[in-house]
Amino acid sequence: MSTKGTSTFIIQRFTAVLLAPIAIWFLFGIVSALTSDYATARAWIANPWNGALLGAFLIIGAWHMRIGMMEIILDYIHSWLKDVLFLINWLVALGIIVASAWAIFHISFAG
């Protein structure tokens, strides 16, 4: 535990640096993608650049979010509930990573 805080601190900064340029791309495309119809949305995701960047944003973002939420839980929850929330937080991050990779892969390659 005593050595883990530093690596968590560094990973949070590292993922932040990776996310910053991808977030700029994301902001340019996401509003029109989210408001478009089924076929247009799938075509947007199937574009290799969009698929790769959307996947990178959601996967790196999931890890960044997990650390941020963990810090919030650590600040406010001091009972047994803390461990339950940690577990849920982990599962949400893993779920986002698996689901987004699987969904983007499926739209891109499985038609």
């Binding site: 996401i30 989210l34 089924y38 949305a41 799938r42 995701i45 959307l54 959601l58 973002g61 999931a62 979010m65 949400v92 779920g95 986002i96 689901a99 987004s100 699987w102 969904a103 983007i104 499926h106 739209i107």
Partner: peptide, 14 residues
């Protein structure tokens, strides 16, 4: 928001 976007993405895929 990301959680909801992933639901949208799952919908688009499956």
């Amino acid at each position: 928001g990301v959680f909801l976007i992933v639901l949208w993405l799952i919908g688009a895929a499956f």
